[in-house]
Design a protein around this nucleic acid. Structure first.
Length: 196
DNA sequence: GCGTCGATGGCA
DNA sequence: GCCATCGACGCG
């Protein structure tokens, strides 16, 4: 007799919403990555919302290019790009067609006795072997998808986004969401001391 | 524990 | 010349 909860695959309706909503609701969700015959599972604890062309931190604010094309399409696809010449960043497209929004996954906790450091967007993709080859993949496929545990109701805190000091007034917007009690956060920057 | 810095490659 | 980063190093 197991007490483990049934995990329900997230559907299109879950993704096709404003990034600011999706980013919060992704906290506590479980991502499943199949590599070979093995499934790796991780619980998301930190995200950031990039909310459209008017958001100066959003890549789509520079216009529609080859790189940002997937963000202009339907929600639920992976937007994966290279940063600093060596790290792939994993995002989930949100919003509607022609309204480019996305949520960056910044940190997660490994499940199932899998020992891995997923405490940062680059570490997360490295450990889960997510690369630009996965760009455009829809998260309904069996190599990469998300599930929902209805019993998992995390507390959520908010801070400004990390690493976007160039984005003028947008750098102050509270668009980073995280579970403050998690030990797998990328950084505690923006949280007040003793916030848990 | 925190500041600083170099690595490294695709893109405008 | 930027970067939605990371890890190594130097502090004291």
């Amino acid at each position: 007799m197991s007490s483990s909860s049934e995990l329900i695959k997230l559907d299109q309706a879950f993704y096709a919403r404003p990034a600011i909503e999706l980013a919060q609701d992704l906290i506590g969700k479980v991502i499943i990555r199949r590599v070979g015959r093995t499934n790796f599972r991780a619980r998301i604890v930190e995200t950031e919302a990039y909310i459209g062309s008017h958001d100066l931190a959003c890549h789509a604010s520079k216009g529609r290019t080859t790189r940002t094309e997937v963000m202009f399409g339907p929600a639920g696809h992976a937007y994966v790009y290279l940063i600093y010449g060596m790290y792939d960043m994993f995002n989930i497209v949100a919003g509607a067609v022609d309204d480019p929004q996305a949520v960056l996954i910044r940190a997660a906790e490994p499940l199932d006795d899998w020992n891995a450091d997923l405490s940062g967007p680059g570490k997360f993709t490295r450990a889960l072997q997510i690369t630009r080859k996965d760009n455009g993949l829809h998260l309904s496929n069996n190599k990469l998808y998300l599930t929902h545990d209805p019993n998992d109701r995390p507390k959520i805190a908010v801070t400004p986004r990390i690493g976007i000091d160039y984005a003028q007034e947008w750098k102050h917007e509270l668009l980073r969401f995280l579970e403050p009690t998690s030990k797998a956060l990328s950084t505690r920057k923006g949280l007040t001391a003793r916030s848990d």
